[in-house]
Design a protein around this nucleic acid. Structure first.
Lengths: 153, 153
DNA sequence: GATGCACCTTCAAGTCACTTGAAGTTCAAT
DNA sequence: ATTGAACTTCAAGTGACTTGAAGGTGCATC
């Protein structure tokens, strides 16, 4: 698409701080268009590709899922669509980030308290006599109203 | 193991805010011991199982990986092991949580700024004319020193 | 005692966003 | 011409489950 299509996949990866498997993966799931190929079949890239992948990576850095990024990419290249859609996606995302932030802060508080108790009440005893650890298993009762699993901390 | 082994898997799931597939999954990966079975082959559980699963879930809530939880479970049931190991795991984990927290705060800041720009500079235009969106693709240059992908916000 | 139905069983495959590995091909430089 | 890095494809692995198919069990009611 561009006049200079001189970059190898490794160059593109270096320029955009991705890896070559990731680039191929993005192409395979349609986030990147099929690359132009050289005679021997190797992918070659130009400035347009750098821009597009940079955009994608930045969106991923923003925490958008690949699916959301696909939507954003479609949005930004379709003249008939409204920019307010972008704002809507961003704002819904901001809400998710803030919710996650609150969870993570609670997690930090809890685990710091745990470590503190662990430090003061049972430094050095055998495992089963660890009081804070044993306490983790108490106080079931409620039936678990506030599910909050912190995945991939 | 316990005198009363009257709970069905669904009851255990409700008591510990898990799901039945998750319980079977935990059993399959060795986090839970093989359940005692009734005549027809259905799993039956007692208070010990409630305690153990509660412990496991709480650890997961704390953000420990299943592998770490396995270590913790081993730790808490092995009299010969030292409680300080628990503390070490917890503290290394606390570090990870705090690092993640910093990332997430940066993400919140960035995305809020993005939404704000989006709001002020291009409310309502077509997608490709969205200036903030276009700006995401600029300023590559550096080669990406600070990789930070926010997975699963 | 039959019926209904919620709940259970196993196993396989799907999810997400890649990463890792194997086995072979191509490019650029010497 | 030869080396060796970088490329190619495809398949499988990761974590922590979730979802689906196809069928069996437990218990209360009629």
């Amino acid at each position: 698409m561009s006049e200079t299509a001189a970059l190898r996949i490794g160059d593109l990866a270096a320029l955009t701080a991705t890896t070559t498997p990731t680039i191929r993966y993005y192409e395979s799931v349609g986030l990147l268009p099929p690359a132009t190929r050289q005679a021997g079949g190797q992918r070659r890239y130009g400035p347009d590709d750098v821009r597009r992948l940079t955009f994608i990576r930045r969106c991923r850095d923003f925490g958008f899922s690949v699916e959301q990024v696909r939507e954003l990419v479609d949005l930004v290249s379709d003249p008939s669509r409204d920019c307010r859609d972008v704002l809507a996606i961003a704002e819904s995302h901001l809400g998710a980030v803030r919710a996650r932030l609150a969870e993570l802060r609670a997690l930090e508080r809890d685990i710091a308290a745990f470590a503190e108790r662990c430090n003061t009440s049972c430094a050095g005893g055998p495992g089963p006599s660890c009081v804070p650890l044993a306490q983790l298993a108490i106080a079931v009762g409620t039936g678990g109203t506030d599910r909050r699993i912190a995945r991939r901390v």
